[in-house]
Design a protein around this nucleic acid. Sequence first.
DNA 1: TCTACCCAATGCTTGCAATC
DNA 2: GATTGCAAGCATTGGGTAGA
Length: 221
Amino acid sequence: MAVTSACKDSAKMGIDNGKYVRYTPEQVEALERLYHDCPKPSSLRRQQLIRECPILSNIEPKQIKVWFQNRRCREKQRKEASRLQAVNRKLTAMNKLLMEENDRLQKQVSQLVYENSYFRQHTQNATLASTDNSCESVVTSGQHHLTPQDPPKDASPAGLLSIAEETLTEFLSKATGTAVEWVQMPGMKPGPDSIGIIAISHGCTGVASRACGLVGLEPTR
DNA sequence: TCTACCCAATGCTTGCAATC
DNA sequence: GATTGCAAGCATTGGGTAGA
């Protein structure tokens, strides 16, 4: 910001002429030099500075003290602003990556929902077939509207559980981008109604595990 | 307790640029 | 040229702290 001649005049006149004065560029330059040498001078040191620097002789010691105080405050604010700008840049970049990842995962979810509906349909057909032997099983009829890349191998409860586990494994594997291994949770009773699972990620640095909680499973669902 | 100092917040003034 | 919004800088105020 440029200092006008009027402002220079008022600064030359000092604080006697008014409440608010702007220091001359020469005075500010001198104060800046002193600040870089010592940002927090003592009272004695400030008086010494005024004596040693004639250009500051028309500024009162109290004003010098206030100037140093405000100068420290300004530096702190500038550093904080700079830090926040750096953080903002990082967060912006991170946000972009997350948006892309979110988009990718949403597409995967759509694909998995599609596959899920396929398995649901065949599970229902298998249940009907097991209760009515007079009808031909849809599973074995080969009349699939969906495109079965991996048709169910076994419609029994154990087989369905296996299918569900495989599907969930695939989902988590896609979601995490790593391989998944199922581990029996300590204290859990193995049984048909519920299973305790932990997904352990492979292929990434370090060891990470993810508790997926209890999944209630009824074979017919 | 008093004094001096610091920090943070705020008020006030000034200069500049944009707008009409 | 007058007005207005904004940023920058100087001064003040209030609360906290350390030392005598």
